[in-house]
Amino acid sequence: MDIKVRVWRQSGPSAGGKMVAYDVKGISPDASFLEMIDVLNETLILDGDDPIAFDHDCREGICGACSMVINGVAHGPEKATTTCQLHMRKFKDGDVIDVEPWRAAAFPVIKDLIVDRSAFDQIIQAGGYISAPTGTAPDAHATPVPKKDADLAFEAATCIGCGACVAACPNGSSMLFTAAKISHLGLMPQGQPERDSRVIDMLQAQDDAGFGGCTNAGECTMVCPKGIPLSLIGRLNSDYRKAITKR
């Protein structure tokens, strides 16, 4: 496959950036999108150019490191798929593909396609945990959990924190991420003691980090590589309402 990619190039956090076009020739349709960038980077290095900086780690769709907006869609055209699991056969020979970093004030660009996602860490630090007692680990079946709750909690817990929801949101809101974290802990018996403070503190941290407000537009769930359902945002709203009325 011969394609043309237009990639956002930015040398540093405070530098200006622009879209730069590159021709990529002889790419296998079975190559992943990241492997295509690897091939492009090899030619850039041989030519003495700066290779394109991009986040990647596991390359098997579970770490949440890869973060590219491909032709305007976070993680590209394939539904419920991370960029690393997207293959070039989803594109046509001769395609022009635009590649941009996540765009959000809370996710400043470090270099090229790499953004700083520590704003998500701040949200987690505000309440995305349970205060576990020390000592030996309790038996896994010591605390019964209804199957329905366990399933929904697991669905929410599949969030890999990649930030695609923020990248796609017309408001630049991280509501789906925060809702997933609140749900997977709030559905478990172990998550109950901190349930009220968790939702209040995590939402505050989200606002403080500079994310926008949620308007239920639903763009987030469309691009989520793990298919986190929009209904969890309703769960967050419900938890928040209960928490503030109890105060």
Partner: peptide
């Protein structure tokens, strides 16, 4: 807040993924 949350716009932004009414 939405404007502040995305100071740099996308160069390539296709038609909406979700609902037309919402956008």
């Amino acid at each position: 807040r939405a404007k502040k949350a995305r100071p740099v716009k996308y160069a390539h932004r296709p038609k909406v993924q979700g609902s037309y009414a919402a956008r």
